[in-house]
Design a protein around this nucleic acid. Structure first.
Lengths: 313, 313
DNA sequence: TATCCTTACGGAATTCGTAAGCATG
DNA sequence: CATGCTTACGAATTCCGTAAGGATA
C-alpha cells in the first residue's frame, strides 16, 4: 500500500470511474493507474470496484468503507505538509476563503484590508460561490475558511462559529407608497412585486419563512445572487427589494430608500465555518480573529478538533 | 513521503531515538532508517528531531505536532487492512481482549465459551494486565477490547460502556466474630487486619474511599491482584478479606463465609472500553453483545466513532 | 468505430543493505 | 573503544510509460 494507490482510489471515485481521466488528473499513465488498483486489491484481498467486463462502474461495499479511511489519510497527508510549511515559512503561504457575494462585498473588505497589511506575504484567495460550492470546497480541502449565512448547515465534519447578526430590510425607489406605511407590514409588502435573493442565498430562507408564517404568498418577480442586482432593478421600478440592510449605501444609492424591517423578518446569523481536522496555518486563525474578537485561536481549535474536546494545544 | 518513512518516525520515538533499534524493529538496515529520516525532513523543509552532534535526542516542536498526524495515519493504514480482512475472511481472524484477573476469572468465562462456539475460527487472545497496561494496549492498537473496573478513566480517545454493576463483600473464616455483627459496620471491620486488592485494582479505590469518608484508617495487612490469593490468606487466618462478591463460590470456598457489604462500600461499575477510530471486526461487536445485550453494534459504533455522533452506518 | 481497460515489457527511479568513516560518551 | 549516526555506492526492487490486445457501447 502506498500513497499513489490511495490517491488513485480517491481520484477514481471523483472522476466517475474513468481510469483514463484519473491518469490525466494525477499526471501519470492510465496503465499505471490500472495496475495500482489491481495491486492494491490483491494486497488487501478484496475487490474495491464493481466491474462489468473491463469497465469500472462503482464501489463495492468494502470499497465504500475503505474510501472513508482513504480520504482521511490523504487529508492527513496534506495536513502534514501544511504543518511543515507552517514552521518552515511561518508568514508565507496561501489562505483560501470561500464566501458569498454579500459577505465579500459588504462584510469582508475591512477584514481583508487589515489582513493584507498584517500578512503581506500570504496570498489570499477569495473565492465566491453558492451554498453547495462553499460546502464542497470546505469538505474537499480546497478552502480553509467559509463565511456564509445559509447553507452552512450543522454537519459533523464542520465546525461553525457565529460571526455577526443582521436583518433584512426593504429597498424602494424614492417616493414609493410603502415609505408612508408605518408600521410596515408583510401584507403591505405582499401587494407589490418583490425582488430578492435566489433560493438558498443570503437568508432567503428566512424571508420565505416569514411570509409563509403569515400565510402570505408574495409575488417574487425576480431573484438575484446579490444586492447590487436587486438594487438595479428596484431602481428601474420593477418592484420592491428585500435584501441585507448592510448592502445599502445612502450616498451611492441616491435614488433608493431603505425601510427597516427587523420586526418582520427573523434575524440572520452569518457564520464562519472550518472543516474539522483540517490543519489551519497560524495566519488563518488571525484572519478569523480579525472577523470577530471572541473567535480566538483557542476557541476555534478546541471546537474544531475532530474529537470535539479541549485538549488541543 | 511514504509509509516507511512514517513508520520510521513513529518507531524512532517509541525506541527512544535509537536508530539502530529502529532498524531492527522494522526489519531493515540502520542506514536506511537514517536516510529516510533525512529525506523526509528535507522534503518537509523542517527538522523533526533534536540532534546533538550525530545523536538524536528528541522531537522538535514541529516533530511533536507531526507525530500526532503520523500516528493517526498509520492507525488508519492498519484499519484499512483490518477492514479488508473483515470482508475477505469474515469469520476468521483474531480478537484481543485485555482485562483484569477478576473479569477474566469470574465474569468472562461464560461469554468466552459462548463466543468460541459461535466463532470457532477466530483466535481469541485474552491478555491479563494492570490498569496502565490495559490502557496502553488499547491506545497502541494491540488490544481491541478492554474490560476493567478501574483505570478506564474518561479519555477522549476511548469510548466506555457500562458492562455490569457489583459490590464488594467481606470474606471471613468460618466462625469469625464478624459473622455475628449485624448490621455490619466499617468500624467493626477496621478492628481486624484486612486483606484486599492492590491499589488501582478491582475497585480498591472505592474501598479506600469508604473508609476515608468514615474517617477510619484500616489496617491493610496485605494486598493481592486477585481474589484467589485473598481467599487463600483469609483462610490461613491472616485477616478478613474485602473482595468482589462474585469471586466467592460457596461450594469451593468451604472454609469461608461471605458477608454482604453493599451498604458499606460504593457500587462498582465494570466497563467495556474500545479505542475511538479503531476498526473493529464484526465478531468484536458480537463479543460485546454477548457481554451485555444492550451494547449492540449500533450503540457501540455511534458512541465510538471519532466525531462522537450517530451517522456511522 | 471510438472509448476504455488489461497485460507485457523495457527503462527509470527508488529503495535497500553492506561497508567504511566519523562522532560521542 | 564500544556504541551510534552518516555517507557512499552497487544491487535489488519497485514504479512508470509505451505499445499492443481485447472488451464494451
Amino acid at each position: 500500500m502506498n500513497f499513489q494507490q490511495l490517491r488513485i482510489i480517491r481520484e477514481t471515485v471523483r472522476r466517475n470511474f474513468n481510469l483514463t481521466e484519473v491518469g490525466n488528473a494525477l499526471f501519470t499513465s492510465q496503465s499505471g493507474v490500472s495496475k495500482h488498483i489491481k495491486d492494491l486489491e490483491e494486497e488487501l484481498g478484496v475487490e474495491l470496484f464493481v466491474r462489468k467486463g473491463k469497465r469500472l462502474l462503482g464501489l463495492t461495499d468494502p470499497g465504500k468503507d475503505l474510501l472513508v479511511l482513504v480520504e482521511r489519510m490523504l487529508h492527513d497527508a496534506q495536513n502534514i505538509k501544511t504543518l511543515a510549511e507552517q514552521y518552515s515559512q511561518c508568514d508565507v503561504g496561501q489562505l483560501t476563503v470561500v464566501t458569498t457575494h454579500t459577505q465579500a462585498r459588504y462584510a469582508l473588505p475591512k477584514v481583508i484590508t487589515e489582513f493584507k497589511k498584517s500578512f503581506p506575504r500570504v496570498r489570499l484567495k477569495l473565492h465566491q460561490g453558492g451554498p453547495q460550492e462553499i460546502i464542497d470546497m470546505l469538505l474537499g480541502g480546497e478552502a480553509d475558511i467559509a463565511i456564509a449565512t445559509e447553507g452552512l448547515a450543522e454537519m459533523p465534519e464542520l465546525a461553525l462559529f457565529p460571526y455577526y447578526r443582521w436583518h433584512h430590510a426593504l429597498v424602494v425607489p424614492v417616493g414609493h407608497p410603502l415609505l408612508e406605511r408605518t408600521p410596515l407590514s408583510l401584507e403591505a409588502i405582499a401587494d407589490y412585486p418583490i425582488i430578492t435573493y435566489h433560493a438558498g442565498f443570503t437568508g432567503r430562507t428566512r424571508i420565505d419563512q416569514a411570509f409563509a408564517d403569515a400565510s402570505l404568498t408574495p409575488d417574487v418577480e425576480m431573484t438575484a445572487l446579490d444586492a447590487d442586482v436587486i438594487k438595479t432593478y428596484v431602481e428601474l421600478g420593477l418592484g420592491v427589494g428585500i435584501m441585507a440592510s448592510m448592502a445599502f449605501n445612502p450616498q451611492r444609492d441616491e435614488g433608493l430608500r431603505l425601510i427597516d424591517a427587523r420586526h418582520l423578518f427573523p434575524e440572520n446569523i452569518t457564520s464562519i465555518g472550518v472543516r474539522r481536522g483540517h490543519y489551519l496555518r497560524g495566519y488563518a486563525y488571525r484572519f478569523i480573529e480579525l472577523c470577530a474578537d471572541h473567535l480566538t485561536e483557542q476557541v476555534v481549535r478546541s471546537a474544531s478538533n475532530p474529537l470535539g474536546n479541549q485538549d488541543a494545544l
